[in-house]
């Protein structure tokens, strides 16, 4: 498309004005807004499309004039969040919501319970001496008792191991 001469342009404008001319209602407001923007912003923006993007940033409350400071603040937030997450990852499992002393007490109680249970089973399944024919049965029962007691002691050991782990994370007590 070639540039029109002055005469051609003038004639064309006259013809155009015979039609009903039109402009969007919001055009003037947008032009004045851009015309009164700080020069640095418009220089940074460049095209009309970029200026619109910056206006959108203004609408959302962000600061287009200082993008570096907002990025820095954002970075700080992310780092603080990560540090808090890492801290909680190590602190929470070590405590599991309870004091070390209370965990020890719990372990001791479980050991006592295991001992008592063993004694109870022995009393319940021990037969009188005069029943010599039942000595084999007695030994089987005792084996059964021992197996149950072993399970209880295993649980007590698990609690002990947890306590050792807690002690390690606490630097030993």
């Amino acid at each position: 498309m070639k540039y029109p001469s002055d005469q051609e342009l003038e004639n064309w404008i006259l013809e155009l004005e015979q039609e009903e001319l039109y402009a969007p209602r919001h055009l003037k407001e947008e032009i004045l807004k851009k015309a009164t923007q700080p020069a640095e912003l418009r220089q940074m923006a460049g095209t009309a499309e970029d200026v619109k993007k910056m206006q959108l940033a203004e609408c959302s409350g962000r600061s287009p004039e200082h993008p570096q400071s907002s990025f820095f603040a954002y970075t700080l937030k992310i780092v603080a969040g990560m540090a808090a997450a890492i801290l909680l990852t190590f602190v929470l499992p070590a405590n599991n919501g309870m004091d070390i002393s209370r965990a020890k007490e719990r372990m001791e109680r479980m050991e006592v319970m295991a001992d008592k249970r063993q004694e109870q089973l022995i009393e319940a399944y021990t037969l009188p001496d005069e029943e010599e024919n039942g000595s084999r049965r007695r030994s089987n029962f005792l084996s059964h008792i021992e197996a149950e007691a072993a399970q209880l002691f295993e649980k007590a050991d698990e609690v002990k191991e947890l306590n050792i782990f807690w002690n390690k994370n606490q630097g030993g007590n």
Partner: peptide, 9 residues
């Protein structure tokens, strides 16, 4: 504004 927009359009 109307003339300019009409020209551009």
């Amino acid at each position: 504004e109307k003339l300019v927009f009409s020209i551009c359009y």
